[in-house]
Amino acid sequence: MNWSTVTEFTLEGFSQYPKLEIILFVLCLLMYLVTLLGNSILITISILNLHLRTPMYFFLINLAFMDICYTTSSITPMVVKFITKRNTIPFTGCALQMYLSLAMGSTECLLLAMMAYDRYIAICHPLRYPIMMNKSVCLQMAAGSWIIGCLTALLETSSALQLPLCGSSINHFTCEILALLKLACTSSFTMDMIMLVVSVLLLPIPMLLICISYSFILFTILRINSADGRSKAFSTCSAHLTVVTLYYGTALSMYLKPSSADSQETDKFITLFYGVVTPMLNPIIYSLRNKEVKGAIKKLLNRNVFSKRL
Results as ranks from 00 to 15, higher is better:
residue 214 Y to T: 03
residue 172 H to A: 10
residue 86 R to H: 12
residue 227 A to I: 14
residue 271 T to F: 09
residue 18 P to N: 10
residue 276 V to K: 03
residue 215 S to V: 10
residue 281 L to W: 05
residue 282 N to S: 09
residue 166 C to E: 13
residue 84 T to I: 02
residue 186 T to S: 14
residue 244 V to R: 05
residue 191 M to N: 08
residue 93 G to W: 05
residue 286 Y to S: 08
residue 202 L to A: 06
residue 214 Y to F: 15
residue 284 I to F: 11
residue 3 W to D: 00
residue 298 K to H: 11
residue 156 E to I: 07
residue 110 L to K: 03
residue 240 H to N: 13
residue 233 A to F: 04
residue 227 A to N: 12
residue 267 D to S: 06
residue 233 A to M: 05
residue 87 N to Y: 00
residue 277 V to Q: 01
residue 233 A to N: 06
residue 245 T to F: 12
residue 107 T to W: 06
residue 48 L to N: 13
residue 90 P to S: 09
residue 230 R to L: 01
residue 107 T to R: 05
residue 53 R to A: 02
residue 246 L to Y: 12
residue 2 N to F: 05
residue 142 A to H: 03
residue 19 K to V: 10
residue 164 P to A: 07
residue 37 L to V: 13
residue 310 L to N: 15
residue 96 L to Q: 07
residue 46 S to A: 08
residue 273 F to S: 11
residue 102 L to Y: 04
residue 110 L to Y: 04
residue 198 V to P: 06
residue 90 P to Q: 08
residue 68 I to H: 05
residue 7 T to P: 09
residue 223 R to D: 12
residue 299 K to L: 15
residue 171 N to K: 14
residue 138 C to H: 04
residue 260 S to H: 12
residue 11 L to F: 02
residue 260 S to M: 08
residue 47 I to Y: 11
residue 259 S to V: 13
residue 5 T to R: 14
residue 260 S to W: 08
residue 108 E to Y: 11
residue 102 L to Q: 10
residue 72 T to S: 13
residue 63 L to M: 12
residue 307 S to Y: 12
residue 128 R to S: 13
residue 190 T to Y: 15
residue 82 F to L: 11
residue 67 D to G: 02
residue 11 L to N: 01
residue 262 D to L: 14
residue 23 I to L: 11
residue 90 P to F: 06
residue 267 D to C: 01
residue 242 T to H: 11
residue 74 S to N: 11
residue 117 Y to H: 09
residue 27 L to F: 11
residue 27 L to Q: 04
residue 15 S to T: 10
residue 105 G to N: 03
residue 24 L to D: 00
residue 113 A to K: 06
residue 12 E to S: 15
residue 115 M to N: 02
residue 154 L to E: 10
residue 152 T to L: 10
residue 77 P to T: 02
residue 203 L to V: 11
residue 21 E to C: 07
residue 205 I to G: 04
residue 224 I to H: 04
residue 130 P to T: 06
residue 172 H to W: 03
residue 197 V to N: 07
residue 105 G to P: 02
residue 28 C to P: 05
residue 175 C to Q: 02
residue 280 M to Y: 05
residue 219 F to K: 14
residue 266 T to C: 01
residue 227 A to Y: 12
residue 222 L to A: 14
